[in-house]
Design a protein around this nucleic acid. Structure first.
Ligand SMILES: [Mn+2]
Ligand SMILES: [Mn+2]
Ligand SMILES: [Zn+2]
Ligand SMILES: [Zn+2]
Lengths: 140, 140
DNA sequence: TATCCAGATGCAATTGAGTTGCATATGGAC
DNA sequence: GTCCATATGCAACTCAATTGCATCTGGATA
């Protein structure tokens, strides 16, 4: 989506106080090229040919979330998914996600379709952290 | 929340084509008295003194969801929680729900705040079945 | 009220996402 | 190049949730 260079990734990591290891650079690069959030398993599968262990992928994804370089989303199927915090390059926008009930496919929803703003609910101010839309996709 | 009698539970089960067993009646009764969705573990703990096995609780909760008597919610901690499907006793319109990440409280969101209509996503028509908003409520 | 069997249950084994412990390897500061 | 805090690989582990299978029972029927 953003497709940053390894050099940029390296800088981002160092700024976050994390070492710029091949596994982390590859993780960030992969997620920068993905149009949708990826699961631990999906990232692991991709980094396997680099000889990266799945435990390392787990730990790195969590560490990168802790460093605010990634965002972790729970899309209702008990699998964490990860995307670049600035995934859609509009400054860290909190955008909704769509999950197909049938095939499990995930899309990012542009904010113009569904605004992720804070709500006033029954005289309560609520802070929105995530919006999830579930339904049937075009193929299902 | 609704506190139905065992007799009503029995009727609901039969209408759904399910046998009205003690474990199921106890499950529905428990959830009808709860102001919050309950987890498998919480329901199991409660039904243990009736001699109900935890596997049976798991299966019943899932079956009751399948029969649309319960609704299953993922509140962001990778633990399924269950509540009566008519928990909010309003007409079953497709309205969004808000879940507090901290306390697990659930609110219905009026459609005027967030329209639960079908979307046109990147040249794809998707059928919306559920909209879930997660965040921090006023108390948290 | 007794019979009967598809559906429900109990118990043990299993799955699978995610974590933890520990010995080894390495990024990057000096 | 040296050094050590940090990162990694590998195996063992946790824990919610599921599955297999023998046994039991709700409730329909006679
Ligand atoms: Mn996204
Ligand atoms: Mn509702
Ligand atoms: Zn689909
Ligand atoms: Zn709350």
């Amino acid at each position: 989506m953003n497709d940053f260079s390894p050099a940029v990734m390296k800088t981002l990591l160092k700024q976050a106080g994390l070492r710029a290891t091949p596994a982390r650079i590859a993780t960030l690069t992969l997620l920068s090229q993905s149009s949708k959030p990826l699961s631990h398993a999906e990232v692991s599968a991709e980094l396997k040919n680099l000889g990266v262990d799945k435990t390392t992928v787990y730990r790195n994804l969590n560490d990168l979330v802790g460093a605010n370089l990634l965002r972790r989303a729970e899309l209702g199927d008990h699998i964490w998914r990860f995307e670049l915090a600035n995934h859609h390059d509009e400054a860290c926008s909190l955008h909704p996600h769509f999950v197909c009930i049938d095939c499990g496919d995930v899309f990012c929803i542009d904010e113009k379709y569904l605004q992720a703003r804070d709500f006033q609910l029954e005289n309560q101010n609520v802070t929105v952290k995530e919006i999830l839309v579930r339904g049937h996709c075009n193929n299902c």
